[in-house]
Write a protein that binds this DNA or RNA. Structure first.
Length: 210
DNA sequence: TTTCAGCTTGCTGCTCAGTG
DNA sequence: CACTGAGCAGCAAGCTGAAA
């Protein structure tokens, strides 16, 4: 359950280029995969809750205001649970988001989940475990696997960016449904995380039709 | 009756066109 | 120039209706 290192990512690139000529073109243009890890699972879940459903700029504003009282850090579970609702509301969080953040903190404080246990689980077990937390859905679980746990073979089938990237790259008429995306992604095993990262780059950096 | 895919609703701050 | 308000981003959860 260790994340891919630089050699691993290079191996993944070669494998993907060999098995998918269309994706190979993107990989050549974009260059090396820079899939980054962003902190431990607890912080990643808090961050995901804040960012989900919101436009990036709006989420960054809220995220900064939430962390300000703790010198820019995310509060530990016990600290977050002790913070009054009014403080969280003042940061710009909705009632739903506050409930979700508290659910994450409760799960970690109670020991239902922990950074160490999540690192030891296989991918499916991680998804099953964290989606029990109110406010944590499949997408969030996938982001956790990819960006915090560094798992190499995650396909975020519901992610808008990945679907849009696939649509542009394979010249589909509409956004692929999760099942269609999964079928499309079969050749990318066991490096579907890396392939997904390149699909995001398609949307970010390569204009449609190019 | 149960299951499940697909659709709808709710959620907030930012952006920008439109108005005075 | 200052202000207003519609449109937007994109996921979670609830709901609906059809299939098994």
């Amino acid at each position: 359950m260790t994340p891919l290192d630089e050699n691993g990512r290079a191996r993944a690139r070669r494998s993907l280029m060999r098995r998918d000529p269309i994706l190979a073109d993107v990989i050549r243009r974009v260059g090396p995969c820079r899939l980054e890890h962003r902190g431990d699972p607890y912080r990643m879940l808090l961050r995901s809750v804040i960012y989900q459903q919101l436009a990036g700029a709006a989420a960054r504003t809220i995220d900064g205001r939430l962390r300000a009282p703790w010198r820019g850090r995310y509060p530990l579970p016990e600290v977050l649970l002790a913070a009054p609702d009014a403080q969280l509301r003042a940061a710009g969080l909705s009632r739903q988001k506050i409930a979700a953040l508290r659910a994450v903190a409760t799960a970690f404080a109670a020991g239902d989940v922990s950074n160490r246990r999540l690192r030891a689980m296989d991918d499916d077990a991680v998804v099953a475990s964290v989606t029990k937390i109110h406010g944590i859905g499949e997408w969030t679980a996938h982001m956790l696997l990819m960006f915090s746990l560094g798992r190499p073979d995650v396909l975020p089938v519901g992610d808008y960016g990945v679907r849009k990237g696939a649509m542009q790259l394979y010249r589909l008429r509409e956004l692929p449904k999760p099942r269609e995306l999964a079928a499309l992604a079969e050749p990318w095993r066991p490096y579907r995380s890396i392939a997904s990262w390149y699909l995001w780059r398609v949307v970010d950096t390569i204009a449609p039709g190019q």
